[in-house]
Amino acid sequence: MPEGHSVHRIARQFDRNIVGRRVSASSPQGRFAEGATVIDGREATAVRAVGKQMFLEFDDDIWLRVHLGMYGAWDFAGEIIVDPTIASANGRMGQTNQRGTDLDAIMDAAGENSLTSIGAPRRTRVHVRMSEQTTGLAEETEWPPPVVGQVRLRLMTVPTPSPLDADASGGASGRVGPTTCADLRGPTACELQTADEVAATIAKLGPDPLVDDLAEGEERFTAVVRRKPTAIGQLLMDQSVVSGIGNVYRAELLFRARLNPHTPGRDVPEEVVRGLWHDWTRLLRIGVETGQMMTMDDLSPDDYRRAMASRDDRHWVYHRAGLPCRVCGTEIALEEMATRKLYWCPSCQR
């Protein structure tokens, strides 16, 4: 399932490429045809991400709520303007012992930090690829891109004619400004909401370090966890307790805290609960910057490159069932907790 860092990256991509533009909307799959008709031709005016959900505002106070769920993703084509706040994977954030090291951008082999498909990892069919330096279409290609697979919603920016781009007869001769296509596939939720409905949806979510005041979020998170008899391994996945944490971050946060996932929340020492919040804040920011769930610290430049290129080299316990713990050598355990796979070290996390 796409976790919180992916949704924040999607929102930033929308802010750079869609917000402030009028869009055409369609539902090639047909399952969102009525909603697409409502927003077709409207201007996207704002976007926000909270946890695993994104909210895209259109004029007349109409909001699109998208929850990617297990398999959802946004695929982008056309001219993609890179958000300058999302740095290349240069090793600086999370690599506090490597100040001054400047590593080149490292792309994950599975495309996890792709600019063209964000959400559930996939090898997307991309017709036009853009870089930070690109100002026009990278190559001549079919436009709009052909619909591939089950696209719930397609949003395309509508070109705005410019007097400087007029032909001899006074008519506009081509599209002006960035032209971007965003295809939504496989979401759990795709619906229109009013502003009040958006507020009600967000009110049900736990704090998000990139949205809420950090101090207030810490207090909310700590108070809820400390009064719950539920296992901490389940609480971290509960979006009403804390927003954005999924299966990968859950396993890694618990290992980094050396915390047994079965410990009732109310039995976790307060300083450990607060430590989980601070660690989540840090890891989420690293995920947004790099596009990858990097959870290992103090790596050498070579190890960092290897980890950024392969998921198997950037996690402590996730997806390592049966392999020796990187710290103590104990076999990493795999079990099911609340229908989701849980990876942990029985020795380090007693």
Rank of each mutant, 00 (worst) to 15 (best):
R129I: 00
I81T: 08
F55L: 14
E43Y: 09
F58H: 09
T124H: 11
G322I: 03
V50I: 15
V241Y: 12
E191R: 14
E142Q: 10
M156I: 10
D302T: 11
Q133V: 10
D59A: 08
M1F: 07
N113Y: 09
Q95W: 08
P159K: 00
H67E: 08
A309Y: 12
D59P: 01
K341L: 04
Q349P: 09
R129K: 11
D15V: 04
C181D: 00
G51D: 09
Q292C: 15
D60C: 04
E142G: 00
K228Y: 03
G78Q: 00
M294R: 10
P301F: 11
S243P: 11
L115E: 12
W143D: 00
T134E: 10
A25L: 08
L283M: 10
T85M: 09
T135F: 03
G186T: 02
L235I: 03
V82G: 00
Q98E: 14
E216Y: 07
T281D: 15
R305I: 14
L155I: 05
Q29M: 09
H262W: 13
L253E: 03
L236E: 03
R21C: 09
R220H: 14
M293Q: 08
T230F: 06
A105S: 09
T124P: 12
G91W: 07
F55Q: 09
V19C: 10
P264Q: 05
Q193M: 15
V151N: 01
F14G: 04
M1V: 09
P301G: 11
E43C: 14
L205T: 11
A105H: 15
A168W: 02
G94D: 05
M130Y: 02
A105E: 14
G69E: 03
E335C: 06
A73K: 12
D60W: 09
G149Q: 00
D312N: 14
L323D: 11
A257M: 14
R320N: 04
Y304L: 15
I286T: 08
T281W: 10
V273P: 05
Q98G: 07
E132K: 12
E252R: 00
M337P: 01
S310M: 15
A321W: 01
A172H: 02
F14H: 07
A231H: 10
L259D: 06
A120W: 09
A203W: 13
V128Y: 00
G246P: 06
G246W: 06
S6Y: 04
V126T: 11
T339I: 03
I232H: 04
E112K: 13
G291H: 10
R16M: 15
S24N: 15
G111P: 11
M294H: 11
E218N: 12
V7K: 02
R326V: 07
